[in-house]
Computed example of a mutant assay.
Amino acid sequence: MASSAQWRKLYDGLYKLYGDCTCPLKHASPFQLLVAVMLSAQCRDDRVNEVTKELFAVAPDPASMAELPVERIAEIIRTCGLYRNKSENLSACAKKLVDEFGGEVPHTMEELTTLPGIGRKSANVVLGDAFKIPGFPVDTHVNRLLNRIGLVDCDDPVKIEAEQNAKVPPELWSNFSHILIQHGRRVCDARKPACDRCTIRPICKRRGVKDK
């Protein structure tokens, strides 16, 4: 099990590269971030931003989204992938926000995860980026990097989140996830990591990486 010092060394190494990051999903409210996060499953951020530009023009808030026919939502978000399931979740989520939360996005993990289509990862994104409440989203990049580097030896996102939360100060959680994702996209690719130009290689165990 990695020590707090090892976790902090990784954070500091990545922070030197990427600094303070913000969520790349364009949004003007907690609800819009919630929607964008739901759409981002198995879809690139740039594609999500293109789709939400059209979607938010007709349904920028829970009330208007709840009134929009599911078929119309599906038509707008078709290029995001899994659009049928996502359109149903968006409609149901908006209706629940209107009916049970006064049209406002809740800001606790317990409440957020009662919303259709919202799990811990998505809830943590909303908490951290919309409400500035510490949260550590564990997506595929975060999972892969922390296992490859050797700070965790587990594929369970909930356990990885708990381990990080126990070793890293809360004020760093959201940004830590962001900079891990940036490194996963730019350097530590799933199939062909660029270890030769990776500045954190000295602290990386390179689990599952074949030597060149």
Rank of each mutant, 00 (worst) to 15 (best):
A5H: 15
P30R: 06
C93F: 03
L68C: 08
L145W: 01
V158S: 05
K96A: 11
P157V: 01
T114N: 05
P30E: 08
V58S: 10
I179L: 12
V98A: 00
G103H: 06
M109A: 06
R144M: 03
M1G: 13
C80A: 14
D156E: 09
N89D: 11
K212A: 07
E104L: 08
N89H: 14
Q6F: 05
I118H: 07
D139W: 06
L39I: 02
A5I: 13
I160S: 05
A162V: 01
V105M: 00
N143F: 00
D189S: 13
F176S: 07
R148T: 07
D61C: 13
L97T: 06
G135F: 01
R84K: 12
A194P: 02
G128R: 09
N165H: 06
C195T: 09
R84I: 12
E75C: 02
L33R: 04
P69C: 02
Q182Y: 15
L115W: 09
N175W: 11
E71I: 04
I160G: 06
R207T: 14
L127H: 10
N124F: 09
R197P: 01
R84V: 12
M109R: 14
T52R: 05
E171C: 06
F56K: 09
F101T: 06
L127Y: 09
T114A: 06
T108L: 07
A59K: 12
K16L: 15
K167E: 09
K16Q: 15
M109Q: 10
M38C: 10
C23S: 13
L127G: 10
K9W: 09
V37D: 05
Q164M: 14
D12E: 15
A36Y: 02
I179H: 03
S91M: 04
L82Q: 05
R8N: 12
P157Y: 00
A94F: 02
P30W: 06
V105C: 00
L180R: 01
Q6Y: 03
E100N: 11
P202N: 01
P62W: 07
K192H: 11
E161H: 13
I133A: 09
D45I: 06
K26M: 10
T22M: 08
N147T: 00
H27W: 05
V158D: 13
R8D: 13
R191E: 10
L55S: 11
I179M: 05
V158H: 11
H183P: 04
